[in-house]
Nucleic acid binder design. Structure first.
Lengths: 255, 255
DNA sequence: ACCTGAACACCGTTCAAGT
DNA sequence: ACCTGAACACCGTTCAAGT
């Protein structure tokens, strides 16, 4: 019976949800969010617009799937391979593991200029759906090793995740401001962009914006990744403050 | 000449950029983001679609302006009134001032369900434009009083702002998941929503998501505002850690 | 079951024409 | 200068019709 069905596929079934999502990511990467239309996608897949809807409910679902696959691809695998009980990086501190997860998201957003906006949109539209648990899991697993009491796990993990998503959103490489820009910005573009932004800050009324005026030059010279890690560090300090490293939380001691 | 111009206005000029932005906010609040169309706005203002474009460049600019006015209205005034050198709350700690600013944004997002998505979108599309300096200024001013060395001001303020925007985005009250939902959700809706989300987390494969499984009940019972303030507290702890309160940074002593 | 592609009901934006 | 509203060039989505 199964064979029958399979045989009847013959040459058809060139399309699949997977292929569509894959093509969507390619289109987003190459031409930006505004270029992802059902018609453009159909043409790229040499099919009609209606065919898309046989595999994907609607445009929003497609964007969600595209975001999900890219995020899943960027994060470490959820399940450690059964043959190697020890993860390669398992000798590192939990702080380092968190930094690695955070950076992988940060870098994924730099490589896919449309990703940050989609992450943010999905965060506001379906806060607990799809992509959030994946990120929560990767970060939250380190709470035990950090010595955080179990009752604080949700709060501390949430804080890290919110920071990561906020910082990732701001540092999406869209210096042209269009948001549909292809390809990450060059270092030169970035520099010009920060120069202009810094000058704009300088031009604000110093009576209204004394602080902005003061730090306009720091803004121009900051390094995205370094600044991002500083923030992670501050939060980790806050989480572990007053709790000497190695102090167990309210969980049973290491097995 | 000026009088001439003014006289010739007579009955016309019923429209203005200000009136348009105001109407846009009303429409967004009442019917959600999807309902804000040029045609709907024109009808609400009893005019033609084209008239909108005499005062506003395009839809994006209008959304930016709407977001800007709501944020500006939520935050404390930039300039202390000249007659009262002492701000009413100026006796409080800088930590409290930061918490107040953070909460005012958090609450604004709860009152305007469309706001968080717009803040996030503008953060990714024009990271340093419009609304960001306003928020930076309100938070950053407290860095001196916190005893943070000047060279760290940009980093510490960025961390707080990124966290605030990330957390605000997630806590936008859109439990229906449509994102264009009018009116903040009721407590009952919120409860049902968290119940469903918590159950969804429980249903994830515990081999893939052991952590999510563990904290599903904490997620259901968390209080948005309380959780939000906990995160602010963690970051403030990280910022001031190792720096006893009252320790001056690298800035001159209090005047 | 899977796909086609015309058709429908919308969009944002422009622009000749009015006052 | 300010406004009108038809027209243009798009959208996402649906659905009878094909294979």
């Amino acid at each position: 019976m199964v064979t029958q069905t399979r045989r009847s596929q013959r040459r058809r079934q060139v399309l699949s949800r997977e292929r569509i999502v894959e093509a969507a990511v390619e289109l987003l990467d190459a031409e930006g969010e505004a270029a992802l239309t059902v018609r453009a996608l159909a043409e790229r897949l040499s099919t009609g617009s209606g065919a898309i809807y046989h595999h994907v409910g609607n445009m929003g679902e497609l964007l969600q799937a595209a975001t999900g696959t890219v995020v899943a691809g960027a994060l470490p695998p959820l399940r450690t391979p059964a043959d190697s009980r020890q993860t390669p990086g398992s000798t590192g501190s939990p702080e380092d593991a968190i930094r690695a997860v955070a950076l992988s998201l940060f870098d994924a957003a730099a490589g896919h200029p449309w990703l940050a906006a989609q992450l943010a949109a999905q965060l506001t539209r379906s806060p607990w759906g799809a992509v959030t648990p994946r990120i929560f899991e990767s970060i939250g697993r380190q709470m035990r090793a950090l010595g955080v009491p179990r009752r604080d796990w949700f709060a501390t993990t949430s804080t890290l995740v919110h920071y990561i998503l906020g910082a990732t959103a701001q540092n999406a490489q869209n210096p042209d401001g269009t948001g549909d820009g292809a390809l990450p910005a060059s270092a030169e573009e970035r520099s010009e962009f920060l120069d202009a932004a810094s000058r704009a800050w300088q031009d604000l009324d110093p009576d209204d914006y004394p602080f902005i005026h003061d730090i306009a030059d720091q803004m121009r010279e900051h390094e995205d990744r370094e600044q991002f890690l500083t923030g992670i560090g501050l939060i980790l300090t806050g989480i572990t403050a007053g709790r000497p490293p190695g102090t167990p939380g309210d969980h049973p001691g290491a097995g």
